[in-house]
């Protein structure tokens, strides 16, 4: 039986794709997690919350 999902056939025609995409998945997962931690340490959380707890005048078409 053969079944197809993007994680198995991308890029097409390569037999080792499944492993490669799985590695890519884990890599991106780790990268995203590191980004969250690094951004938090860089003070981005404060920026986000400062923007979010005040009425965004641009969002409502005033600013």
């Amino acid at each position: 039986m053969s079944s197809r999902a993007c994680w198995q056939t991308f890029p097409p025609g390569r037999s080792t794709v499944s492993t490669r995409v799985r590695v890519l998945q884990v890599f991106l997962l780790v990268l995203a997690t590191l980004g969250i931690v690094a951004g938090a340490m860089n003070g981005e959380v404060r920026t986000v919350i400062t923007k979010a707890i005040n009425v965004c005048l641009q969002c409502i078409g005033i600013g």
């Binding site: 997962l29 995203a32 690094a38 951004g39 938090a40 981005e44 986000v48």
Partner: peptide, 16 residues
């Protein structure tokens, strides 16, 4: 700042 790692990381986590 010029790069948004925290928000990009959150979006990336959901995306992956």
């Amino acid at each position: 700042d010029r790069i948004s790692m925290y928000v990009a990381g959150l979006i990336g986590l959901l995306g992956i």
